[in-house]
Simulated scan of single mutants.
Amino acid sequence: MATPTEKPRALVSWRLLALLYDALPVLALWFLASAGFTVAFTFLGHHDPHQNIAPFSPLQWLLWALCFAIAGAYAVLSWRRGGQTLGMRPWRLRVVAANGGTPSMRALCVRFAVGTVSLLAAGLGFWWAWIDRDRLAWHDRASGTRLLREPKR
């Protein structure tokens, strides 16, 4: 339980709402990257346009890696800059280090990587916060960060 001076931890529902909200700018960035990728490899004559939709082609894996890097850069740089992504602002959520300070770049990268694995595992790392005594998700524990809810102004 939070002490009166400690900020409350973020509930799972707020985390999921922020994640859903953050999907919009990330998808927009993915669309731009995909368009640039298609233009670069199609119009420069490197392959047939039909290969853009071929499943499991090497170019598809390259595009997926690019999209993963874009999502990671969006999250990590947003957390580093102000502790929040666009999706976290309406619900007043903020990422902080376990001691309340600014998290290191390494901790934020670990947070993103473990959070991605958590999502790929049907969101188990997020649901874990419901049974965790401190209401921490897998990526909170692994990275030594916390997601706090700021009070209303």
Rank of each mutant, 00 (worst) to 15 (best):
W14P: 00
S34H: 10
L59D: 13
A137H: 09
F41K: 06
D22C: 03
P25F: 02
V76K: 02
M105T: 14
S78T: 02
R81H: 13
V76T: 06
I53R: 14
A33Q: 03
G100A: 12
L27K: 04
L120D: 10
G83N: 03
S143P: 00
P90K: 03
W91N: 02
V39C: 09
Q60R: 14
V114P: 00
V114D: 02
W127N: 05
Y21D: 04
G36S: 06
Y74I: 00
H50G: 06
A75D: 12
A35K: 14
T102G: 11
W61Q: 09
R149I: 02
A142G: 04
T3H: 09
R89F: 01
G115Y: 01
F56Y: 11
G72L: 05
W30L: 09
T5A: 12
T38E: 14
A129T: 08
L24F: 15
M105L: 15
A73H: 05
C109W: 15
A73P: 13
A54P: 02
G45A: 04
R153V: 12
R153D: 10
G87N: 03
F56I: 00
K7F: 12
A69M: 14
W127A: 13
R133N: 15
A122Q: 11
W14K: 12
L136M: 06
W138Y: 07
L59G: 14
L17S: 07
P90Q: 01
L11K: 13
Q51S: 08
R81P: 07
V26L: 10
A23Y: 10
A142S: 02
F41C: 01
M105N: 12
L62E: 13
L147T: 08
L59T: 10
W61R: 08
F68G: 03
L136D: 05
V96T: 13
K152E: 09
L77V: 05
S104W: 07
L120A: 12
L20N: 01
I53Y: 12
R106V: 13
E150W: 03
L63M: 11
L59C: 02
R92N: 04
L66H: 08
R146I: 01
T38D: 15
L136Q: 15
A75T: 11
R94Q: 08
S57N: 14
W61T: 14
A40W: 12
N52R: 09
L16R: 11
R80M: 03
R146C: 04
W130T: 07
M88K: 07
W30E: 12
R106E: 13
S104T: 15
A113I: 09
V110Y: 04
V110K: 08
Q51Y: 11
T85G: 01
G144Q: 00
